[in-house]
Design a protein around this nucleic acid. Sequence first.
DNA 1: AAGTATCATCGTAATATTGCGATATACTTG
DNA 2: CAAGTATATCGCAATATTACGATGATACTT
Lengths: 109, 109
Amino acid sequence: MGITKSEIFTKEQNKLATMLKAIAHPARIAILQHLIKADACICGDLVEELGLAQATISQHLKELKNAGIIQGTVEGASVCYCINPKVWQQYKKELDALFGSYKGSTGCC
Amino acid sequence: MGITKSEIFTKEQNKLATMLKAIAHPARIAILQHLIKADACICGDLVEELGLAQATISQHLKELKNAGIIQGTVEGASVCYCINPKVWQQYKKELDALFGSYKGSTGCC
DNA sequence: AAGTATCATCGTAATATTGCGATATACTTG
DNA sequence: CAAGTATATCGCAATATTACGATGATACTT
């Protein structure tokens, strides 16, 4: 009834799903792309850049931070965000593994 | 208000998010992995394999089919599903582009 | 200390997702 | 054609997500 039955899946499957869910939102993709382009930026920049309310941006940043894919450092009154290189590479690796595991086939179609 | 403001994002960002959302669920990852391993299979196989109700599996299959990542062919009374190689490669390419666009940096951390 | 800027959290409303039983549809077999 | 098999769809209940205003917390400035 509306709750994902995570106990019937493997740890890997649940982890991958959580990972993908973290970046499966246009706002969060936009945030990541902006972080890549600008190297780093503060929350206020993203509010201006994306045109969403500050509370909304903060919430998305929190989810990305929970996923580990970004990290924030307090810098005076503001918080500077940037990509977490290690986690980024790990994401890349795991997605490569998933998408690389399919070698094509005749299937049934 | 609970509705994603897709109009403020680019077509690419929305497309990527939709793509990722399609596979951002452990059941759908499990389905894809089974399809990769078995080359092809019918809905009933997945019901047994995953331990979810038939209606639930059918719904997940529908979402994967909507995303274009799998395709089904009617085979008598049953429907045979398999990976769509073209779309699979496209997904792979777009994710490589996203994850390859980050070349590391000092960030701010 | 008071004021300002920046960000996080709370609470809420709207909407979306998840899972399933029941039922409908389509094909096969006797 | 009737009965069986396989899948899709409907309708519902439970839960999750999205967005935002209001408010709280923190740190810098004067």
